[in-house]
Simulated scan of single mutants.
Amino acid sequence: MVYFLFILAVIVTVLAAIKISTYADAITRLSSVGSLFVGTFLLAGATSLPEVTTSVTAVFLENPDMAVGNVLGSNLFNLSILAVFLIIYRHRAILSSVHKEQRHTAILGVLMTTFVVVALFYTIEIPVVNIGIESLVLLVLYGLSIWLLRGADEQNSDAGDEKVTEEKYTLKHAITGFIIAAIIILISGSVLTFSGDQIAILTGLGSSFVGSFLIATSTSLPEVVTVYVALKLNNHNLAAASIFGSNLFNLLILVLCDFLYPGSILLAASPTNIYTGGFLLLSSLVVTIAIFRAQTKRLSIALPLFMLLFYASSMVLLYLLR
């Protein structure tokens, strides 16, 4: 029964993600908001709702390993998603054609990940607000990302190809559909958490491994679908922004978990999460380099392959250390 619930939640999540991606693309065309902002905050926040429910529920289940592993594993998987699409669509030079503001979100992602990795070794708790110093830094850096993108107007640069077909949605319809799809993703994320926790117990694989890979992969399915749909719509900015924005938002989830958990959730988590965090940092550095450098044919293959290697290495290492 638990496996059936898990698979059902995965299917519902995928279907909802397809719709939410289409609605997000429509909102960028019908409103004055560019795809960079929509992808980085609106779409990324919505597709990260399963991670929110999963990690928060794991806190109440007193399973800090699953909470932290889900966030770090989801971010690592998100970059692997991007790597796969970079290889498939290598002739498009996706990262070379995205808005220059994407560099800011990529750099902030590296900085936020660095603070999380350091906090897995050592952190200073702030008793008044029940969070560690790294959580406060994460809040500041996320706020900085909003400030940096506040004036980014991509209305003229979003259209990868001119569409003469009649608009399928009104703005009101797109926003309403987006909200409904987000709620469905939120609910399915909760089901993924409970079923995943039971699978970890039944299989004996351990919460770190299950949280970092089984659940993290499942809760990242919306990102897989949104990137694919965005690329099919030839909206490179929306595709890249949804990944970078999701990773920023996911790290922010750790702040909420840290607030809800008695003590530091990062220190309470298993030391094996350090390996996931380390590989995530390496992968984040590689994708940041890819954005800043001109994409030659060799680099367009080599850099994504490194990102996939980091993901595979972390999965094997965590399985051996479970």
Rank of each mutant, 00 (worst) to 15 (best):
K19F: 06
P262K: 06
S190G: 15
V12S: 03
S220R: 13
L76D: 13
A26T: 05
F209D: 09
S300I: 05
D258E: 11
P304H: 02
L138D: 01
A182D: 00
F85K: 09
T57D: 13
L86I: 05
W147K: 03
S21M: 07
L281A: 14
N273V: 14
S313Y: 02
E223A: 08
T170F: 07
A174R: 01
S313F: 06
V84A: 07
H104W: 01
S242A: 15
L320R: 12
V33L: 07
L252H: 05
L267K: 15
K172Q: 03
S190H: 01
L72Y: 14
L82K: 09
L76R: 09
I187W: 00
K100A: 01
T193H: 03
I199K: 09
Q198R: 02
L238D: 13
F121C: 12
I215Y: 07
V52T: 10
E134T: 06
N273F: 13
A26K: 04
S32C: 05
L281T: 13
S55F: 08
I146A: 06
I291M: 04
G196Y: 00
G69N: 08
N235E: 06
S145H: 02
P50G: 12
A17P: 13
T276H: 07
N70I: 13
G109C: 04
H236L: 15
Y311Q: 11
A230E: 08
V286E: 00
T113N: 02
A200S: 08
M307F: 05
N237G: 15
L5C: 13
L267W: 10
T13D: 11
G151C: 01
D65Y: 09
R29L: 11
T22Q: 04
L30S: 05
S188I: 05
F77W: 11
S218P: 04
L238S: 14
R293H: 01
Y122K: 03
M315Y: 04
L280W: 00
G278K: 00
L49S: 13
G189V: 00
